[in-house]
Design a protein around this nucleic acid. Sequence first.
DNA 1: TTTCGTGCAAAGGTTTTGCACCGCA
DNA 2: TGCGGTGCAAAACCTTTGCACGAAA
Lengths: 160, 160
Amino acid sequence: MDIVEQIDKINRQLTVNGYKLTPQREITLKVLLENERDHLSAEDVFMLVRQKFPEIGLATVYRTLELLAELNIVQKMNFGDGVARFDLRQEGHDHMHHHLVCRLRLEKEKIQDDWLLELEQRVANEYGFKVTDHRLDFMGVYQTCKNDSKTCKRTGKAVS
Amino acid sequence: MDIVEQIDKINRQLTVNGYKLTPQREITLKVLLENERDHLSAEDVFMLVRQKFPEIGLATVYRTLELLAELNIVQKMNFGDGVARFDLRQEGHDHMHHHLVCRLRLEKEKIQDDWLLELEQRVANEYGFKVTDHRLDFMGVYQTCKNDSKTCKRTGKAVS
DNA sequence: TTTCGTGCAAAGGTTTTGCACCGCA
DNA sequence: TGCGGTGCAAAACCTTTGCACGAAA
């Protein structure tokens, strides 16, 4: 499915829920689609959108992202760095987001494997809890990073 | 291990790292120990500490929590509600934190079972990633909550 | 006209920082 | 004296909100 088709599909989701696909919203979506592999902050999105649509306001970007999150078109995430980050929900991975968060790199890597379906089943059975979404983050260090450096790039402190 | 012993142990951790156990830090620790089962925000901690030590400043609480998080004595968490929350790391559950986050309740329930050791092993093997910590949250609804109400307590909106 | 969406600026809330001061080695 | 730690206030920061305006049904 190419970008035009995806936007078309999302447009229908908006319409069904009584919202319009304004130029601002369309460009915001394009930016999200073009950066599917990143975890963009609202500020990131704002700056990318402004390259294509300089008149846009930051508040509009926030409102658009909030709207898309509410409609479950994007997922709002939090890595503890003080800003919310947004990911387009991908086909076939409706609500699976696993990340490797390396103390030495600043980036995060996604794991796409659905390793958690069995766990969800277990939670449902043992806790009477219907899971609609989950999030799994592993914090740690890549072996390759560890070999490269003994100093954390973020804090400048030595890491064990 | 009672609270005195735990504080004693943490005192040693502080000393080893060149920090002192000031009265402010000790009372902050006591509050955290007395509320192990909650996920207190910095503001929560501040208000509880102030009951025992009215002169304390909010900045000191923030600095103490940051220090404790850095030494891995508390875990800093984020549930997406705009505030960081802090948990004492418990004996025998050094770095395991799983939560059930219900859309209808505001609280979160901890799962203590270590369901993820095998997954960590897998990540280590397949990604060359040494896991030092992980976080797993399940978002969803308790069956009992669903029966009680069709309206979300947080947003006031109907939930499916 | 009515409604929805927007840009701008202001406000809100959380967290961090600057600075003077204090206690202790 | 030197240094770590503190309280207070100000600043910084991200995000939300109020408001007037504009476009579309």
